[in-house]
Amino acid sequence: MDLAFFGVQLLNGLQYGLLLFLIASGLTLIFGIMGIINLAHGAMYMIGAYLVWDLTLRLGNFWLAILIAIPIAVALGLVIERLFLDTLYKRDHLYQVLLTFGLILVINEAQRIIWGGDVHSVAIPAPFDASLQLTDNLQYSVYRLFVMGVCLALAGVIYWVIRHTRLGIIIRAGAVNRDMVEGLGINVRTLFTLIFSVGVALTAFAGMIAAPLTSITPGMGDSILITCFVVVVIGGIGSIKGAFWGAILIGMAETFGSVLIPSIASMVIYLIMAAVLLVKPRGLFA
C-alpha cells in the first residue's frame, strides 16, 4: 500500500466515522437523557435514505429533496415519540427493546410496501459531482469531502450546544443523573420530545447525505444500527464525546480492516469492542 492509497483510505475512514457519529450521537443522546434504548434508530436512517431517493426522483433535485425530507423525518419522530415511547419512560429496558423491535418490523415492512424491495442509488448531486486531483494518479470525490465538512460542522454545533447553552447543561446533567433533570424544574416532557426529534433528525439526515455514497437497500438500517451500538458501547453510553471518538475509531477500523485483512474485516469492530469491554466495561469516556 503506497502512501497515496493510504491517504485515500484515511479520508474514507474519516468520512464513514463522521457519518457514524451523526447516527450514534442521536442514539446516545436519546439514551443518556431519556433512558430509552431505541432499536428503531437504524430504521430511521433507512427512511432518510429512501425519502431522499424518492423525492430526488420526483423533484429532480437532491438538495430540494433533503429540504423536504428533513421535516418529514422529524414529524415521523414526533409521532413515534408521542404515540409509543411516552408510555415507556418509566418501564424496564426490556419493554423498550420489544416495542422498538416491533416498530422496526412495522417500519421495515412499510418501506417494502411503499418503495419495494429493490436496491436503489442516488446520483452524486451537482455541484459536488466532481473529483479532486490529489496527486498525479489519485482522485478524491468532492462529495465525500462535502459530507465530511457537513458532519464536522454538525459535530461542532452539537459540541457548542452542549458546552455553552442552558440546554447543554441540562443534557450533561441528565446523562450523569437523570432524576436531577426533573429536580431542576424543567419541563421534562418537552425536553424529551425535543431530544428524540433531534436524534431522529440526525440519523435520518445521515441517511440522506449518505444516499449518494451507498446503495439504498431494505436492510441498511439494521446493520448500521448494530455498528452504532458498538460505537456507543466503546465510547460510553450518554457521552457525545465518546460517540465521536468511538465513531472515528470504528470508521477507521472498518475501512482499513476491509482493505488490510478482508477475511476477518466484519469481525474487527467486535474484537475492538471486546477489547474495550475487557479494560473498561463502561466504555472509554463514561
Binding site: 451500538f229 456507543v232 453510553i237 469492542m273
Partner: peptide, 25 residues
C-alpha cells in the same frame, strides 16, 4: 465473562453485538 460486567442497556447492546459477531464470522 465479557458481557456480565456490563449493566442494563450496556448488556443489551453488547449481547446484540457479540451475537452479530458470530453471525458475520
Amino acid at each position: 465473562l465479557l458481557v456480565i460486567r456490563t449493566k442494563g442497556i450496556f448488556f443489551i447492546m453488547t449481547t446484540l453485538a457479540f451475537g452479530q459477531m458470530l453471525y458475520y464470522l
